Simulated assay, not measured.
Amino acid sequence: MTDLSASSAVRLAELTTLRVGGPVHRFVEAASEDEIIATVAAADAAGEPVLVLGGGSNVLAADDGFPGVVVRDGRRGIAVESQDACGGAAIRVPAGQPWEDVVLRAVAEGWRGVEALAGIPGSTGATPVQNVGAYGQEVAEVISSVRTWDRGTGRIRTLARSELGFGYRSSLLKDSFSDDGTGRAWLPSPRFVVLEVSFQFVLADTSAPIAYPELATTLGVALGERAASAEVRDAVLELRRGKGMVLDARDHDTWSAGSFFTNPVMTAEQAQRLPQDAPRFPVGEQVKTSAAWLIARSGFGKGHGSPGPAALSTKHVLALTNRGGARASDLLALAREVREGVRTTFGVDLVPEPVLVSARL
């Protein structure tokens, strides 16, 4: 375990893909599950704020820094519990394992179900929290259980898929940031700290049915058809690179937290108030629309904010980016401008996707 005090000048800007954020009081790089639990439990007992960090790809941290302990999971590995034609593949992955490596292994081994989730930055432990999804797939489709440290009870708790309450970019884990039934707020880390994620895959070299029109067009197949998993992965990476959504230190469009706002989900009545040409996708009894469409139609084009230090991506209006030298305050100001513009134009309140650390929007 590496434990560094504030004198080491570890800054959240060094630990996050937005590359903003001030110094942390204490930084711990944990090498085992026991070290993660011990660090979090000791901080909770002392009343010290805790930020459990993976790849830092979904965090916007304040310029003033973080007055508590930042715990980063340094564990790696993919454990295959079973693999056969009848039962498929069952694997266990520590929370700190980079997600992209899981996708690459899955495609190579013929584990179907995450091929369209290629290129998503961050750690495996973050994927169930927001039910990470892209191009018609969601990680909830292949998760079997999540092993967690329950800060509320001080015990390890394994949550089955049926208990995780998965929805669009949501889960019981995400809800436990501030609503765990006790009235206690656990921010900036949830009550349930992810330790390990278990997956169950079907064995196949072909993908799940293609459910996203843009991906189907790129692959040259009809919606609902399958393609070779490796081809799906490559097509997704091509699409994501075209939108600045694959990390590249040389490309400031990738100095971001990915999509900054979630796509709004509303009632059918609320959706009727949108313009006729607004995108509408059924989500159960509700309707989802496109945050990117709302932003663009509210007058915010690609690159809005340039030549300032913070601007919308030049490739995709849903990403807020650090053009070099940006501070958290610059990104927050841009986010407020966009949110207010959409509210004024359409009466829709956009919800930020990243975790705000010692910051408010």
Rank of each mutant, 00 (worst) to 15 (best):
L4V: 09
S8Y: 12
S32H: 09
E35F: 10
A41G: 05
A42P: 04
A46Y: 03
V50C: 09
V50L: 04
L51A: 01
V52I: 12
S57Q: 10
S57T: 14
V59D: 00
P67I: 02
V69M: 09
D73F: 10
G77P: 12
I78K: 08
A79W: 03
Q83C: 15
C86T: 14
A89K: 08
V93M: 06
A95M: 09
E100V: 13
D101W: 05
R105Y: 02
G110E: 04
A116S: 15
G122Y: 01
A126S: 14
V129C: 05
V132I: 15
G133N: 11
G136I: 06
Q137N: 09
E138A: 13
R147E: 15
T148C: 15
R157C: 10
L159S: 05
S162C: 04
E163Q: 15
L172Q: 06
D175Y: 01
P188I: 07
R191G: 05
D205N: 08
P209N: 05
L219C: 09
A227G: 11
V232W: 11
D248K: 02
D251E: 13
W255I: 00
F261E: 03
T262K: 15
M266T: 12
L274N: 03
D277S: 13
A278M: 03
P282W: 07
E285W: 00
A292I: 12
W293S: 03
L294F: 07
G301Y: 08
G305R: 13
S306W: 06
S313Q: 12
G325Y: 01
L331H: 02
A333D: 03
V338F: 11
V338I: 15
V342A: 05
G347F: 13
L350A: 04
R360G: 00
L361F: 10
